[in-house]
Design a protein around this nucleic acid. Sequence first.
RNA 1: GCCCGGGUGGCGGAAUGGCAGACGCGGCGGAUUCAAAAUCCGCUGUCCGAAAGGGCGUGUGGGUUCGAAUCCCACCCCGGGCACCA
Length: 825
Amino acid sequence: MPRYEPNKVEPRWQDLWANEGTYEIDNDDPRDPRYVLSMYPYPSGPAHIGHVRNYTFGDLLVRYHTMNGYGVLSPIGFDSFGLPAENAAIKSGEHPREFTDARIPELAASLRRIGAVYDTRRTIKSHDPEYIKWTQWIFLRFWEAGLAYRAEAPVNWCPGCKTVLANEQVVNGLCERSDDPVEKRNMEQWFYKITDYAQELLDDLDALEWPDRVKIMQRNWIGRSEGAEFGLPIAGPDGKADPEAEPLMVYTTRPDTGFGMTFAVVSPEHPRVEELTSDDNKKIVRAFQAEVKDKSDIDRMSTSAALDKRGVATGRNVINPFTGQAIPIFLADYVLITYGTGAIMAVPGQDQRDWDFAKTHGLDIIRTVQPPDDFGGEAFTGAGPAINSSNGELNLDGMEVAEAKATAIDWLTQQNLGNRKINFRLRDWLLSRQRFWGCPIPVVYCDACGLRPVPESELPIVAPDDVEFLPGGDSPLTRHAGFLNTTCPDCGEPARRETDTMDTFVDSSWYFLRFTDPWNTDAPFSHEDASHFLPVDQYIGGIEHAILHLLYARFFTKALADTGVAPKELREPMKRLFTQGMVRMGGVKMSKSKGNTVAPEAIVEANGADALRLAILQVKPPAEDVDWEDFQLDGCERFLHRVWRLAHPNTDLFQTHKADPTDADRAIEVATHVLIDRVTNEYERWAYNTAVAGFMEFTNVLYRYVQSDAGANKKTIDEAVDALLLLLAPAVPHLAAELWSLRHDGDHIHLRPWPTADPAKLVVDTATMIVQVNGKLRDRFEVPTEISAQDAKALALSSAKVQAQLDGEPRKIIVRQPNIVNIVA
RNA sequence: GCCCGGGUGGCGGAAUGGCAGACGCGGCGGAUUCAAAAUCCGCUGUCCGAAAGGGCGUGUGGGUUCGAAUCCCACCCCGGGCACCA
């Protein structure tokens, strides 16, 4: 019997799957479709173990579902725009396109070498002009629909990456890529109107089969709150409301506490600051605005800043409409211009931030909710009856919070001051980037006509080849005359091209749709093909995309459906999501940028791709993070050799016999069907680590069986081994394919149907009954499954070990035949 | 601070109300071998004991239950998310 040599066997099967198109699927394939998709990777060169883990899980499912008779769509693509290629260009001068085009085959080869199978005819690259064309075309559709717009706004600027960032890309005030502190700048930028979909994005989460963790993160990010928006009349010099002045609009979730409002606060960036500042206070107000402007978010958010509640009075007052009192207006940086109206009613009795501010600045504090007697805190934010809350028309006293809120909102509405309002934390998606290596935004600037879309016939707008990257790192598009200078599509006069490119998350927001119809030259995809495969049945990727990519992709799907690009009824892109854990090395995430990667090539060379795949499945539940140091490659390799020796048709491990079936043979039959049942169930629920344990246990059982003196019954062992190989086929495809082919005359295991457990073979006629005394195990018996309660009880009491523990009559006996008898002494 | 996960042998983990520690790694012992590698077999939570056997044991403390790693309450520790969002 030859020894198993993975390096000879594995490439042969990889070639066969590719050459025969085993995992290619046509759109008119008659089988029931299943769409299994792993998030497409950024092509940073050869894969590392983190990638391999991700794509192994996906590959297992592709093969499993195929064996279950589905027509599985398994595409792969490359998220090939992005900063690493541009940074490499700045260093070496190599054009990002050349750099990227060289990296993609390296990554593709890595994936092929671990046995991952795809319909490679459908491969997508974000930077492919054909893909750029449709990304730009979609931008223009969104623009027409009012979902893309250009506006000046305070934006996040990363000085390291020399570009603006979306809110989602700022982590604790730092750029998520470069860790540089992010600066606030007022700039005119492009946005996608994701806020139009805030409510739907929130509501539709409920029906998704996604990890709760991800759904919760998205809910928090969307951040819906219910409250009231209303106007505070501006006080004139006489302390009375000035009927000429526009009231100051504020947003609150606690309109019930209005009687406790003792001052108002506006954000330093609020547009009405100038108008609401008295002549005497102009100087300090401007100084404060300047001070805040210079602070980065990281300074503004640091713990000490959060505590000290800096701010200045504007010298003007507003009227608290609940009490009629004139109260002062302050500027403070704890009020954000980006949320609500950028101005608040401050109620120090019921809000800790307002409390802190009031204490710092010596302002009045009035409680309007009765705290419990033992309340020892400062601001009281809990539930309780309203107090100090009545005027001539409105009396909230004694009402609980919910009722008081509703009553206060009704009153504000009657008074024509404001109304109920729902607010979201979610901001529009800032999509423009001042970078070269991204999808150009297809618009031109004309002096006469203004902002004009590039006509569809001129798409794609592709970045030029003859560009020079300077050490400063700015985009060469801004100084490339050939790219920059164009003519206005409307008036034909000279015009300038937009030099901003799109966030690379735009590319990944619709690639899963393009996979369904990648050859389409008339549209990004057809409704028919999108409907055939979508939503994605199983999406697989890292938890780091819980908000960014997964929220954007959901928004895109809804917006595409509403603009008629996608089928109207396609509201969600991914039905099921699985987020696999990351691979760590030395306690930190393995990634190219951290320089701590392990290349699979060396491991494949030494142990084989199947051993690596098995080690990935075996080491931990797939959802959890794992340290590379914990992988057990040698043990997995050893197991594969054990299977080889057992399953090879010329095995020297044992002799078979043809005698009548014995009890031992029957036990193997039962074990075989129990394993089929078990592994099927475990594959379905992503319990790959216990499935591997099942394979190992079963193999151990078979070894004991075939090495026993009686030898093995040929029929029994053949059935057992064939079942084992079928169950292994999705996990260790090369070994399973090779052995099956040897055993079955060149047949392809991956085209065989998935085995099913015979219920009749799962029936066992004896069980182990344990006997406890006071919950402690004292004895055990093999009993017939059908044993009666009386017999079980009698048997338990007959045990000497049990009797030794008993002192007199048992007080109570619980019988759960045939598994347990518990005697309470 | 708020919201999620999680805490089980030397290590990765298994068991979701009923035999704690499956399976693997590591370790120990044996077979085979001139020897080694490879392979095969056995043992391996901890304490007491020569053994039989027994005590203890799933972060800590309490509770529910005939019975708790599993359910409930309080707390400690670790990881993640959000963080002045009115």
